[in-house]
Nucleic acid binder design. Structure first.
Lengths: 226, 226
DNA sequence: CTATTGACCTGACGCCCATCAGGCCATATA
DNA sequence: TATATGGCCTGATGGGCGTCAGGTCAATAG
């Protein structure tokens, strides 16, 4: 009331700082890869700092409106805003090696690397990347040893290029939904279509949202796949 | 080795059971609304059963391939498959009341109800529903008191109908991205466009993916909005 | 009938986690 | 230069959480 003396020293920053940006990035990465947010301790280990410091940083990020959190709850953490300059930034996506019929597509053991892809490709879904073996999709611009970025989703629309699990094998094909049957069409005249009926066990693993040449780090999203 | 006697009684079910389906549904609902999975205890409270029973059910769901989990970790839970007959099922989405400039759009206090929307509309993103006040979008089929379903996303494409936070107020408008400025266009000849420059504080809250009349429970998704 | 499973319970054990107190150093402002 | 913040630390505390043991009851296949 009476004394309204202004604070003297360094005053609280409104903008996000470097370490905070890094913290937010690691939370995002964890969330995308594991499906749930990290605990304060796990976050601290990832960042290489103490859990008390991680706790501080999370509080800062909450104060600045980037995170929402439910106090005193393990993993009670959710991202509610992205830093403006990172909205169109790159998001790390795990590269999976072998895709087998068992469920653990994104299991730790299968992850053989990481690629950066445009964040807006990933949106809020879980994604993974896959190395192409074979030339059945060359006419769609997908060559042998290319890396495809796949958004994990159990349903897809007719015309989408999808990663499908047919029996024991994973393939990348263009999906066509007919009245009774589903067709998996290669984009290479030297390959045949696969027709799938209700009796076959077909599982859609996800939809291809980007392709990039082997070893490249420059994204090359194809128009209209989104 | 020697005695290979077959099991006699009721044998393990391959398919998902009723209570298990309900458990999975509640996990999904929790995940969509809070941004992270529930703990075993929270899940038990929601289902009205003991935490040991909830633990049992989660184990069953893991065994049957619906959930992935990291043992001994709080909230170490992620959905990896949806029951086939629920793939195109309805997902509950919270209805938020007031949207103010403060961050907590999906805060507990703001949630005034729930609507069921088609699961494929929501995909893997976080969504909310909003009651329309005003007639500025009538030509797009969005009337006063209609309920719009919004997928939360910080970026949108030109032509999308979005919920935008302009200063202190939330509005639903069609978004047009020009070279330098952004335009928020109503769909009603009696209203004017709003032109937004880099100096204005504009935040995209999300994209409208469906509209439904007040009090209705029948989804009426508009073509091409997805 | 009998074995076995699903779905539920109570109770206990032990670890992990969030939080807080208290302190260090560098930095930036009045 | 005084002061307050960001970013970091160690250490202690207490509660929440996952897990397991052991039990009940109903349903079902041999």
């Amino acid at each position: 009331m009476s004394q309204n003396h202004k604070p003297r020293g360094r005053r609280p920053l409104k903008e996000i700082t470097g370490p905070q940006r890094r913290t937010l990035k690691e939370i995002r990465r964890f969330l995308h890869q594991r499906g749930f947010p990290p605990t304060i301790k796990e976050l601290a280990d990832i960042l290489g700092i103490s859990h008390a410091s991680a706790h501080d940083q999370v509080n800062q990020l909450v104060r600045k409106g980037y995170l929402r959190r439910e106090p005193r709850k393990a993993r009670g953490l959710a991202i509610i805003r992205e830093p403006e300059d990172e909205a169109s930034d790159m998001v790390p996506v795990p590269i999976v090696g072998e895709v087998a019929a068992g469920q653990p597509i994104l299991a730790q053991e299968n992850i053989i690397g990481e690629v950066l892809v445009e964040g807006k490709l990933v949106r809020s879904g879980r994604c993974f990347a896959l190395e192409i073996a074979g030339d059945s999709m060359v006419d769609a611009g997908i060559n042998d040893q290319d890396l495809v970025v796949v958004r994990q989703q159990p349903v897809a629309e007719s015309g989408d290029i999808v990663v499908a699990l047919l029996g024991d094998e994973a393939t990348v094909k263009r999906l066509y939904i007919r009245e009774e049957r589903i067709e998996l069409r290669p984009e290479n005249s030297r390959h045949r279509s696969i027709s799938v009926g209700p009796e076959d066990e077909l599982r859609i693993l996800g939809k291809v949202v980007a392709v990039r040449p082997p070893g490249s780090n420059n994204p090359r999203p194809e128009k209209g796949w989104q």
